[in-house]
Write a protein that binds this DNA or RNA. Structure first.
Lengths: 225, 225
DNA sequence: ATTTTGTGTAAACATAAGGTTAACATGGAA
DNA sequence: TTCCATGTTAACCTTATGTTTACACAAAAT
């Protein structure tokens, strides 16, 4: 399966910087979006639900720190990676930035290549399991071969079914909200009916024959042994 | 509950640096160990199995890069956090360091405070999921997995029941007024009858089998061990 | 080019879990 | 005792999810 591209939102008021970062990250295979001030960053973040947000600290409307605080106070953005970008290279700003809940802090002048390396390093750490075979109980899921086995007996799943199962199994026990599932598997722009997820869940349950997908009514689904 | 201390191994050939970093990280609550060259770093890593290894790049016996590569080739150290420390501040070294599989790269001269912030940021990211779990006595509440356990035995709660318990347990000992509970769990716009809360409380008490929800007559409810 | 097959989505309906209510019980304080 | 807040129970209603069927569409096979 083609790994879904990671979404990155960059917020900076200098168009030049936006452009050069955008260029370099896009070249690296990321899906890049931009915002030119704090408010726009917040608005776009809510709609895009990016995997990483790069925030300039000195921005009009709202500073990067303010944006970061607002994002971190919402449960949807608890796990979103955040990198601060800034001209302030003094020690205290950096410490303050990291303590606000950012994952990295890069000082200007920015080397695009270094920034890309740091972005890669963050994603490598978080999504380390991707591409690896997931084994839980007697179920094993190989995202490379696009195959699922139960007790070493192969089961064939369709693409969407596989993606859905793979998502749920990537964090066993964790509940995925219907919304999360939609954005992760279907993407942000696609709109599908209410029953679509259920239908796929049903098909997976049917094909696997093992009861490992648990419904948490009113919340979502989770994978359990 | 106290989290077990995180173990950090620092490798550098300059005793001064070892000492100052050791001092600052220990003060922050980490369990710190040191090594004075590449080989010693490898040996101690195998015995200590630290959560984080801070490696100077220019070291006798083996460079930090070599040590990193050797560690990453062993399955035991796939997940270990690694930070490079170096006097080389040029772009290419940094990129190379990050691509070797390190999680961060800090240039000398090192500000101990900044290093501590970065260490904290890494741990915060990796261990955040565990931080969300509330543990009081033998009851643990995991909002991510949407699960409640008593003495490690899972208990299944319905959505409203879970939300109610989670609210009360979020501030153990504190009394929540009925009004507070209504607005927090049901929202401001919903209007429900008098007995609704009681019924849910009852169900929780029944399912948990442990007496941890105390009634404060005329006031509200609280969670107590 | 045409047929076949498999996949993804929508729509309609069924079902059961969850949530609420109402009626009554209990128990302590004035 | 009497009152009032909460406990208890079971019936009831609501709603999220399960299930099935049908259809559109694209890829593969003919």
């Amino acid at each position: 399966m083609e790994a879904p591209k990671k979404r990155i939102l960059i917020a900076d008021d200098e168009p030049d910087i936006l452009e050069i970062i955008n260029y370099n990250l896009t070249k690296e295979g990321y899906e890049v979006y931009t915002a030119k001030d704090g408010n726009e960053a917040l608005d776009r973040a809510k709609i895009l639900n990016p995997d990483l947000i790069i925030l300039d600290i000195m921005m009009p409307k709202k500073t990067g720190i303010e944006v970061c605080n607002l994002l971190r106070s919402q449960s949807l953005f608890q796990e979103t990676l955040i990198i601060f970008l800034t001209a302030l290279s003094d020690e205290n700003s950096q410490i303050k930035g990291l303590e606000t809940g950012a994952d990295d802090y890069v000082s200007k002048p920015i080397s695009p290549k270094v920034l890309v390396s740091r972005v890669n390093a963050l994603f490598r750490r978080i999504y380390k399991e991707e591409g690896k075979t997931i084994k839980i109980g007697n179920v094993s899921i190989d995202p490379v071969k696009f195959m699922v086995s139960i007790d070493d007996k192969g089961v064939v799943l369709a693409k969407k079914e596989f993606e859905l199962l793979h998502l749920l199994a990537s964090k066993p026990g964790r509940v995925f909200l219907r919304n999360e599932i939609l954005t992760q598997v279907w993407g942000t722009d696609v709109i599908v009916g209410d029953r679509t997820i259920d239908v796929h869940i049903r098909k997976i349950r049917q094909k696997l024959g093992v009861d490992c997908l648990t419904t948490v009514k009113g919340v979502g689904y989770k994978f359990e042994a």
